[in-house]
Nucleic acid binder design. Structure first.
Lengths: 196, 196
DNA sequence: TGTACATCAGTGAACGCGCGTTCACTGATGTAC
DNA sequence: TGTACATCAGTGAACGCGCGTTCACTGATGTAC
């Protein structure tokens, strides 16, 4: 195929390049000019696809949520697991997603998407992901547990997997030799949090 | 006192203004020109005090660690508490520091300070803070617990309080009505993590 | 199948702006005698 | 106590740079007939 005047799929290339920049901690460099340069395209070409950098970032975030939710649903939809096994495996899947896709994960919880009345697509996806966690953790509690207790347990569990993900991702748990073993160990412990 | 030609304490003012910008999510605006503008001082004045923005930020971070460690030491140095009470109170103090000083807290764990061979002052402070947590959690374990187990428990506990802090700070636990109650409830639960 | 035309996607020059940084300067402060 | 001088801290003009954004343009692609 001869090199065409048109890029082919500049939109997808922009999403990919943005993600790569977040991954390599070059968030501060993200901008239309820099992206155009990296994709070897003229300065103004990106404007054909995104009105602003914020909208570009939110598109990347929505892609990320889709991947994230797909991965979690592999666990929540697995009928072979007991409720407690499912809770534990969900935690493991959550943390592994974060470790495998640190750039995406960091972006998913970027504060800027959680302003009232903006980025509703992203916020809706975030709520959906939390819903999976709430349902899975609630199934491990006594049937007559109050909604308040269910919410507390789910939020505490979420905090723990989020914290584990963040610290592992940022390399702040350097001492840990076998990450997978540590993750499994931690998620086993999290089962204790539901015991009231 | 007549308005002097000299600012008086521009260095301290720079630290304070930087912190305020982080607190109000204007991190992207931090720069010598913007700081000079806010402090009503000429563009080049800040250069008398800091060689680069990175060094300015690391000075802010060191201030933050000092405050953070002081707050934790109020708990670890309290002889009236049992080991388990001390562990729980340490978690509560940790989370409350984060909630009360979100800007400082966010900065303390900024990835940029954890590159090998740079910002050793900051890294040393971070290690000291973790040391307090490791010691306190280890005291709750059986005396013959292995260093490996001690480290695992401490890291898991750290992840949990870090996660709780982050989500509370970022307003992602909106449902929580009584924050202090939720924090106390969570830190009580964390005691279970040490039971093997 | 061929042609005419509309639309799409990328170009390249230009604008105004804010940034970091340098430099010779000067007013303010501190100190030696 | 007064004076002379060194040093300190802030000034303001200037440089070069990269950014976002606009605009008239044009090559490439798709489609109607």
């Amino acid at each position: 195929m001869p090199k065409s005047y048109h890029h082919g799929d500049l939109r997808a290339a922009l999403l990919e390049a943005t993600l790569a920049m977040i991954a390599s901690d070059e968030t501060h460099l993200i901008g239309f000019r820099e992206l155009a340069r990296r994709l070897d395209v003229s300065r103004s070409a990106p404007y054909r696809h995104f009105e602003s950098i914020e909208l570009l970032l939110s598109a990347v975030a929505e892609d990320g949520y889709q991947k994230f939710i797909e991965r979690l649903e592999v666990v929540t939809g697995n009928p072979a697991l007991s409720n407690r096994e499912r809770f534990m495996e969900l935690g493991i899947a959550y943390i592994n997603f974060a470790i495998d896709n640190p750039a995406h994960y960091r972006l998913l919880f970027d504060q800027r998407f959680f302003e009232e009345g903006k980025f509703e697509g992203v916020q809706h996806s975030a709520a959906k992901a939390f819903g999976l966690l709430l349902e899975t953790s609630s199934n491990c509690l006594a049937e007559d547990a109050s909604p308040q207790v269910k919410a507390n347990v789910a939020h505490l569990a979420w905090s723990c997997v989020h914290g584990l993900s963040s610290l592992l991702m940022n390399g702040q748990l350097k001492h840990v030799k076998d990450r997978q073993k540590f993750i499994r160990y931690s998620c086993e412990k999290l089962l204790l949090l539901g015991d009231i």
